[in-house]
Design a protein around this nucleic acid. Structure first.
Length: 366
DNA sequence: AAGTCGGGGTG
DNA sequence: CACCCAGACTT
């Protein structure tokens, strides 16, 4: 109570300017101006570490296929992965399904209406819980995302690294203190939109910034230095050798399991090596023998496609070969499917590129 | 606290 | 090329 009174007397320092700026400058998006917690939730998950333009069509497809939480809870895992194909961070899709089922089981199919209830769902952390709680229900929880870190670190000249426990606590407390408790949802959206459109990472629009008169970073010429991050991303190489196996109109794929990259996506038979390997070395490997020991004559093409698949923390050196076998190999762990069914399965962008290349160069194989 | 998980845009 | 994007989870 005391805090609320204090804030009313002082006025939330950023709120007035942000609301006015937002009214003039915001983008119109399908997940804005609605109070359906389900749709807001879906949009927030899709937009995690993802730009609006990249997630836009995924959101539309997802909502038209799964318009409410019960339809999603009843969904087939593979169909959800297929809808998510190409978007990245695939654990989001798996968690989405888990959370939808949690809503049905624990909340009777009604999306939870408290911050704690929302936060308890799989895949929802502090940010997403605050976003849904404030947007859908007007609850007073401040969002802290990449935009908020940037805007606040600059206006207040804070150089505490944002990827440390100390930094996260500091910015969470500041964001909470600054929150406009009369319109938490509108304020949160405005702050993030301002970070996304004006206070951008490089070459921000300081010349027309509504906070130019009070921005510490601008005054001290440190705008481009803030926010500070301490962690540096180390990119490790991996070597993937894929085999497009053909026999009598069939091919073989499997679903990736474990905690590795692309979990729950499908892929062609793979031999991963810890360094660059030629085809002859691969053919001498134990995995090759395991794959093709009962396949009769095995004909292998030279590399049909090779590329470096660049991710934020990995660079995957990939090579694809085409293999034709005399008999259907009994490849343990892989499943046989008709070639024309390949498109039904969710695959990584890497495999997608290969299949696209293949259909361009060898249309007869499809 | 540090590592892991994708893919694409930007200057 | 480095950095970042409506982050969350595991170890």
């Amino acid at each position: 109570m005391k805090k609320g009174t204090e804030q009313e007397e002082q006025g939330a320092p950023l709120a007035a300017g942000l609301h006015a700026w937002y009214a003039e400058n915001h983008r119109v998006l399908p997940w804005r101006g609605i109070t359906d917690a389900y749709r807001i939730w879906i949009s927030e998950i899709i937009l995690q570490q993802t730009r609006v333009v990249q997630g836009f069509e995924y959101y539309n497809r997802f909502i038209s296929r799964f318009p409410d939480v019960r339809s999603l809870a009843a969904a087939d895992d593979d169909e959800v992965m297929k809808l998510w194909q190409g978007l990245g961070y695939y654990s989001r899709a798996r968690n989405l399904l888990t959370a939808a089922r949690q809503v049905v089981e624990r909340f009777g199919g009604e999306f939870p209406t408290t911050y704690e209830g929302i936060r308890s769902l799989q895949g929802i952390g502090d940010y997403t819980a605050a976003a849904v709680a404030s947007f859908a229900y007007g609850l007073p929880h401040a969002v802290v995302d990449g935009n908020v870190y940037r805007v606040l670190s600059r206006i207040y000249g804070i150089d505490t690294p944002i990827d440390t426990t100390e930094g996260r606590k500091l910015f969470a407390a500041l964001a909470d203190e600054l929150l406009d408790r009369k319109d938490p949802g509108g304020y949160n959206q405005a702050l993030m939109e301002f970070g996304a459109l004006y206070c951008v990472p490089r070459s921000p629009q300081c010349g027309r910034c509504i906070f130019a008169d009070r921005c510490m970073a601008l005054a001290t010429h440190r705008v481009e230095e803030l926010p500070v991050k301490q962690g540096k991303t180390v990119v490790k190489p991996r070597y993937f050798n894929y085999f497009y196996v053909r026999q009598g109109g069939d091919t073989w794929i499997r679903r990736r399991e474990g905690r590795d990259i692309w979990r729950n996506l499908y892929e062609l038979p793979l031999i991963e090596t810890d360094e660059e390997q030629g085809l002859d070395d691969l053919q001498r490997s134990g995995i090759w023998a395991e794959l093709f020991h009962d396949a009769g004559q095995v004909g292998v093409s030279s590399q049909v496609y090779s590329c470096k698949h660049v991710l934020s923390h990995r660079i995957i050196h990939a090579r694809f070969y085409m293999v034709e076998t005399e008999f259907a190999p009994d490849m343990t762990g892989y499943m046989k499917i008709p070639v024309e069914r390949l498109g039904d399965y969710a695959v990584s962008r890497l495999t997608e590129s290969f299949l696209e290349k293949l259909s361009m160069n060898y249309p007869s194989l499809f």
